[in-house]
Amino acid sequence: MDVFMKGLSKAKEGVVAAAEKTKQGVAEAAGKTKEGVLYVGSKTKEGVVHGVATVAEKTKEQVTNVGGAVVTGVTAVAQKTVEGAGSIAAATGFVKKDQLGKNEEGAPQEGILEDMPVDPDNEAYEMPSEEGYQDYEPEA
């Protein structure tokens, strides 16, 4: 019985440690998101679009440190934060509304985080759909 109880105690310690790591990862992701939003706020009209992409990228980098179902929630929060940063930029006159959601080359930025393969159960990952990809044929 002692062996059984000791095993359960060790398992509990492992769960607590994993929860603490997840909590730490979420806190880091939130900190990076805040950094990115402050970065966007300090940019001029020309830099705002690039700044919004930076927020998304920093958040995406930190999301990889967070495991399990938390990833889905962090990704949703990050996307809403990026959308909010863009709205703030438009409201303050840093950028025109028609410039939001495009990178410096004018290509749409939507789907940055949505296409990231995420499995809350950590069982399997699927690649994003290939609808947006084109076949590449090298020139002879």
Rank of each mutant, 00 (worst) to 15 (best):
M1H: 00
V3P: 00
V3D: 01
F4I: 11
F4C: 02
M5H: 00
K6I: 09
K6V: 03
G7P: 01
S9C: 11
S9P: 00
S9V: 09
S9N: 07
S9H: 07
S9I: 10
K10T: 03
A11C: 15
K12Q: 04
K12W: 06
K12I: 06
G14R: 14
G14T: 15
V15C: 06
V15N: 00
V15I: 13
V16D: 01
A17P: 00
A17W: 12
A18E: 00
A19C: 05
E20T: 09
E20K: 11
E20L: 05
E20G: 04
E20A: 06
E20Q: 05
T22S: 05
Q24I: 13
Q24K: 09
V26N: 00
A27W: 13
A27M: 14
A27C: 10
A27T: 03
A27Y: 15
E28L: 10
A29H: 02
A29G: 02
A29D: 00
T33P: 00
T33A: 11
E35G: 02
E35L: 09
E35T: 09
G36V: 15
V37C: 07
V37I: 13
V37M: 06
V37G: 01
V37L: 14
L38N: 04
V40W: 03
G41P: 00
G41R: 03
S42A: 14
S42M: 14
K43E: 00
T44D: 00
K45W: 15
K45G: 03
E46D: 14
G47T: 13
V48F: 03
V49G: 04
V49P: 01
V49I: 11
H50W: 09
G51Q: 09
A53R: 14
T54R: 10
T54V: 07
T54M: 13
V55H: 01
K58N: 03
K58E: 02
T59L: 05
K60Y: 11
E61D: 10
E61F: 11
Q62K: 09
Q62L: 10
V63K: 01
V63C: 06
T64Y: 05
N65R: 09
V66Y: 11
G67W: 15
G67V: 11
G68C: 05
A69W: 15
A69D: 03
V70H: 01
V70F: 03
V71P: 01
G73S: 15
G73Y: 10
T75L: 11
T75S: 08
A76W: 10
V77S: 02
A78W: 15
Q79E: 03
K80M: 09
K80H: 11
T81A: 09
V82K: 08
E83W: 08
E83G: 10
E83M: 06
G84T: 15
G84N: 10
G84D: 03
A85M: 13
G86K: 14
S87T: 06
S87D: 07
S87C: 10
I88N: 03
A89R: 13
A91P: 04
A91S: 05
T92R: 05
G93N: 05
V95D: 03
K96Q: 07
K97M: 04
K97Q: 04
Q99L: 15
Q99R: 07
Q99S: 08
Q99G: 12
L100A: 12
G101D: 14
G101Y: 14
G101N: 03
N103P: 10
E104F: 14
E104Q: 11
E104Y: 08
E104R: 10
E105C: 05
E105P: 04
E105R: 10
G106K: 07
G106S: 13
A107Q: 04
A107P: 08
P108M: 09
P108H: 14
Q109F: 12
E110S: 06
D115P: 06
D115Y: 14
M116K: 09
M116T: 11
V118R: 06
V118M: 07
D119E: 06
D119T: 11
P120Y: 05
D121I: 09
D121C: 05
E123D: 13
Y125W: 10
Y125D: 10
E126C: 14
E126V: 11
M127T: 07
M127P: 03
M127F: 14
P128G: 05
E131D: 12
G132P: 04
G132A: 09
Y133G: 10
Y133Q: 07
Q134Y: 15
Q134E: 06
Q134L: 11
D135K: 04
D135V: 07
Y136I: 07
Y136E: 03
E137F: 12
P138R: 08
P138F: 06
E139C: 02
A140H: 08
A140K: 11
